[in-house]
């Protein structure tokens, strides 16, 4: 699972890079517009270690943000699964909060919380939370009729059991959603760093953009992609492990 993800990422990255180089040599562009392979390699040697540290810094925030989002989405999803007035109220509130663009909210967040850890975390969580919520709501609101009917008829149904049944029956979907939301958490953290933080790969990309250095940006994208592929592969492995454990019980 993990090697496959990494190989797939490498194929996509190098296809993209080959496309860029085709444009460079087709249009005879200088290294200022699109760096050549030698300059990209030189930049990689000079910046890879520093950028890898930045990516890991960003990823640590993204993971915490994602965990928070999962908890929040599960909480709202469990409450919002009910067809009661309160359930629908929670859903509407959750949708409306997401309607505000993060770039408009970010300056307010940075003024209130500063440009450190908390702001990055909050923005990462805000960006990856909504798609998670939609999926969790979809899964939790959909009854598994044949199984749930049995417990209802025998009077043993509790809300915890209902949640457990629906989660178990949709574990594959949940794992995919959680793995996918890692991308959003990472993107959210990078956006936050790009706007106002003092650390992380988003901050380094901003500096590279100031200096019109596409070589550095390509290295950053490579490291972000590879780290994310490893993380998503691990999440999928965890999902499969939980399912196996659950099934054996």
């Amino acid at each position: 699972m993990l090697p496959r993800r990494i190989v797939q990422f490498l194929i996509i990255y190098f296809l993209g890079l080959a496309g860029l180089l085709a444009v460079k040599y087709g249009l005879q562009l200088s290294n200022y517009v699109i760096p050549g392979p030698a300059l990209i390699w030189q930049t990689f040697q000079a910046e890879a270690v520093r950028y890898l540290r930045d990516v890991l810094d960003t990823m640590s925030i993204a993971i915490i943000g994602q965990v928070l989002s999962i908890c929040l989405a599960l909480l709202v999803g469990i409450v919002g699964r009910q067809t009661t007035w309160f359930g629908s109220f929670v859903k509407v509130a959750a949708y409306n909060v997401q309607a505000y663009p993060i770039v408009a909210l970010a300056p307010i967040i940075f003024i209130l919380l500063g440009d450190g850890f908390l702001s990055r975390l909050l923005i990462a969580a805000m960006i990856c939370y909504f798609p998670l919520l939609l999926s969790v709501l979809g899964i939790m609101a959909e009854p598994i009729r044949d199984i749930e009917h049995f417990y209802r008829m025998t009077g043993r149904m509790r809300w915890q059991l209902e949640v457990k049944i629906r989660a178990f029956e949709n574990l594959g979907k949940l794992t995919t959603v959680v793995a996918g939301s890692a991308t959003l958490a990472m993107a959210g953290t990078i956006v936050a760093e790009f706007i106002a933080a003092n650390a992380g790969i988003g901050y380094s990309i901003r500096i590279a953009l100031y200096q019109s250095d596409l070589g550095k940006i390509l290295i950053a994208l490579f490291l972000i992609g590879i780290s994310l592929s490893v993380y998503q592969g691990l999440l999928e492995w965890c999902g499969a492990f939980i399912r196996r454990t659950w099934e054996s019980n």
């Binding site: 290294n31 200022y32 200096q211 019109s212």
Partner: peptide, 12 residues
């Protein structure tokens, strides 16, 4: 600084 960076990377 943009011009000098561009010249450094061979921009005409």
């Amino acid at each position: 600084d943009q011009v000098i960076r561009a010249l450094d990377k061979g921009a005409p």
